[in-house]
Computed example of a mutant assay.
Amino acid sequence: MNTKEIILKKTFNLLLLKGFDNVSITDIKNYTGMSRGILYHYFKNKEELFIEVTERYFVHIFDFDIRKIKDFTVYEFCDFLNKRFKKIAKTISTIEQEINGSSDASLLNYHFLFYQVMQRDAIFRNKYKTTTEKELIGWEYALQNSIDKNEIRQDIDIKSSARQLFTLTDGIWFQSIFSNDGRIIINNIKESLLHYIRLLE
């Protein structure tokens, strides 16, 4: 792991544990074991470091290429979304294990940090909005593809069903603030989506 990678991972871990408001450049220096000179060699200031952490651990994880999923059926898109949520949970767990040797942070910490980023960063809000719009479009593609393959009924309202599937996914994902076990939440998402999809058959 190179120096920049260490700084990003340890800063993300520190932000998960303490939140934006409670982390200073001195905290980052002490937590990473890097001098201010090294930190400022890679990042102009704390804000630039935070922006890169946000890009890596929120934007890049959530975002996807709509062209890669446009031929998915509802079952394939459901599987794709569940893999994405598993990747988020695994990323948090892996970083915790690498940094601390334990998993002190949870999806609750991740959601808390997510809301802080949403509140502070208009660019991030716009990027996340674009990702949610792509997810809605992904469900529309998937529903149409499943209709074309006679996997679900022909008479469903695609736009309405896409919104309901999106809301179901998003709602259960954000309920993970009440659970320390990301696996349970991800399984709940999958089961709920599959239950809804079966209603469309």
Score class of each variant (00 low, 15 high):
2 N>I: 05
3 T>R: 05
5 E>S: 15
6 I>Y: 06
6 I>N: 11
7 I>N: 07
10 K>A: 05
13 N>H: 13
13 N>V: 09
18 K>V: 00
19 G>T: 01
22 N>A: 07
25 I>R: 00
25 I>V: 12
30 N>I: 11
33 G>W: 01
34 M>G: 03
36 R>L: 12
40 Y>H: 12
40 Y>W: 04
41 H>T: 12
44 K>A: 12
44 K>E: 13
46 K>M: 06
50 F>G: 07
60 H>Q: 15
62 F>A: 11
63 D>R: 03
65 D>I: 09
66 I>Y: 04
69 I>H: 07
73 T>Q: 09
79 D>F: 07
80 F>V: 03
81 L>P: 09
84 R>W: 04
85 F>N: 10
85 F>L: 08
90 K>T: 08
90 K>S: 06
91 T>K: 03
98 E>K: 10
105 A>Y: 06
105 A>E: 11
109 N>C: 00
112 F>R: 15
124 F>Q: 05
124 F>I: 00
125 R>V: 06
128 Y>D: 10
129 K>S: 15
129 K>D: 15
132 T>C: 13
141 Y>L: 01
144 Q>S: 08
146 S>I: 09
147 I>F: 03
148 D>P: 06
150 N>V: 10
152 I>Y: 06
154 Q>T: 11
156 I>E: 04
156 I>Q: 03
158 I>M: 00
161 S>Y: 05
167 T>K: 02
168 L>A: 05
169 T>D: 01
171 G>S: 14
171 G>I: 04
172 I>R: 08
177 I>L: 01
178 F>D: 10
178 F>L: 14
181 D>R: 01
182 G>H: 04
185 I>P: 09
186 I>G: 05
200 L>H: 11
